[in-house]
Design a protein around this nucleic acid. Structure first.
Length: 322
DNA sequence: AACTGACGCAACCGCACAGTA
DNA sequence: TTACTGTGCGGTTGCGTCAGT
C-alpha cells in the first residue's frame, strides 16, 4: 500500500525559497493562519508542496524565531537535555524558546558533537569515551559543568532503578526475583562509581533537587548499593539469595506497589510555564494503576545504554497481571 | 586570482503516528 | 476495523560561504 510522497506532484518547485515566495507564504498565514498545509500552496499561489511550506514557515519565517549565535547557557542546556533525551530535537526545542528543532539539530551536529568528542565525551552516551588512548589526558580537560550534567544524568538512572526495585519488591503479586536480579545487574558494577557520584552531592543536590524534582539523594545510593548486595561485583545470576536480600518490606514505606508521585523524572529547566502538560517528562499519571502502561514517559529518557528497556519489557506482563 | 576542502545551514526525504470517514 | 489523510519528527543531502594554499 503506502502513500505517495506529498512532493511527488509534478511542477512542484524545490530548492531554495525566493523572497517573493516567502512573502506569499507569510502574507497568507498572517491572513488565514496555519491551516491545511496540503491545500495551502494552491491557496497562497505557491508552486511548492505543503510540506515544504510548513518547513519553511516553522524553521525560518515564523515571527517568534530567534536567530543568531547560541549562547553559552543555551549550549549547556542543549547538552544537558541531550544527555537525558537523546535526539529528541523537538522536545529539546520546546525548552529553548525561539529555537527550532532543525536549528538545534544542526548546531548539535556541526558544533556540539565535535566539542564533546574533543573533550573525550561520547556524544551519544555522554559518558567519557573509553576508545581513546588519549582519554586520560582529555578527561582532565572536562568542563566541570559538562561533567556535572553527565553525573546528573547518571543519577537519574539510579533513581529510576531505585523505584523499579521498590515497585517490584513492595507490590502484589509477589516480587519477581528474576526481574529484581536483572535490575541488580543494571546498576553500576563498581560501587565506587556510585560513591563518586554522591561525593558530588552538594552540586548534584542543587542541580537535581532544584530542577529535576527528584527526592533526596542519600537513600538512593544506599538502596542501590543494597541492591547489589553491597558487593562491587554484579550479582551472580545463579545466586537467588542475593536478590532476596536486596530489599526488605520495611523499605516499602507507604507507597507500596507504586512509584511515588514525588518521583518526577527530569523537568530540566526552570520554565515549566512554557511547556504543555503533555510535554512534561513525568512519571506522574503512571502511578498506582498497574493496568496502565507504567513507564511510557521513560521512553523519553533514552536510557538504552542502561538496559532498562529490557527490564520494562519483562515487567509489562507482570504488572498487568490481575 | 584561482582552486579546494571544510563547514554551516536550509531544505528534502522517508517514516511513524494520530485523526477521521 | 480499515483505509486514507495530515502532520510532525529525525536523518540526510546539497548548496553557499569562507579560510587556507
Amino acid at each position: 500500500m503506502g502513500r505517495p510522497p506529498c512532493c511527488d506532484e509534478h511542477g512542484v518547485k524545490k530548492g531554495s525559497w525566493m523572497p517573493d515566495e516567502d512573502k506569499k507564504l507569510t502574507d497568507y498565514i498572517q491572513k488565514h493562519g496555519q491551516g491545511n498545509w496540503r491545500r495551502l500552496p494552491k491557496l497562497a499561489g505557491l508552486d511548492r508542496c505543503g510540506k515544504s511550506c510548513r518547513l519553511r514557515w516553522t524553521n525560518y519565517l515564523r515571527p517568534d524565531i530567534r536567530r543568531g549565535k547560541f549562547t553559552d547557557e543555551e549550549e549547556k542546556l542543549i547538552i544537558q537535555l541531550h544527555s537525558v533525551l537523546g535526539n529528541k530535537w523537538s522536545t529539546i526545542a520546546t525548552r529553548l524558546p525561539g529555537r527550532t528543532d532543525n536549528e538545534i539539530k544542526n548546531f548539535w551536529n556541526t558544533t556540539l558533537r565535535k566539542k564533546l568528542l574533543q573533550m573525550g565525551i561520547d556524544p551519544v552516551t555522554h559518558q567519557p569515551r573509553t576508545d581513546l588512548s588519549l582519554l586520560s589526558s582529555s578527561t582532565s580537560r572536562l568542563d566541570s559543568s559538562l561533567q556535572l550534567q553527565v553525573d546528573a544524568a547518571r543519577l537519574i538512572e539510579l533513581h529510576l532503578v531505585q523505584n523499579l526495585v521498590r515497585l517490584l519488591t513492595c507490590s502484589s503479586p509477589a516480587p519477581n526475583l528474576d526481574l529484581i536480579r536483572l535490575l541488580g545487574s543494571a546498576v553500576p558494577k563498581n560501587h565506587h562509581q556510585v560513591n563518586d557520584l554522591f561525593a558530588l552531592t552538594p552540586q548534584l543536590s542543587s542541580l537535581v533537587n532544584g530542577s529535576l524534582g527528584l527526592p533526596s539523594l542519600a537513600p538512593v545510593g544506599q538502596q542501590i548499593l543494597s541492591v547489589n548486595g553491597g558487593q562491587t561485583a554484579a550479582p551472580s545470576s545463579a545466586d537467588d539469595s542475593s536478590s532476596e536480600s536486596m530489599m526488605t518490606s520495611k523499605d516499602c514505606g507507604t507507597n507500596s506497589g507504586t512509584i511515588p508521585a514525588s518521583v518526577t523524572a527530569p523537568s530540566l529547566v526552570s520554565s515549566p510555564e512554557n511547556m504543555s502538560k503533555n510535554e512534561t517528562i513525568s512519571l506522574e499519571g503512571s502511578t498506582n494503576t498497574p493496568t496502565s502502561p507504567p513507564f511510557e514517559a521513560w521512553d523519553a529518557l533514552n536510557l538504552d545504554d542502561f538496559g532498562w528497556k529490557e527490564i520494562i519489557d519483562q515487567m509489562s506482563p507482570w504488572l498487568n497481571a490481575p
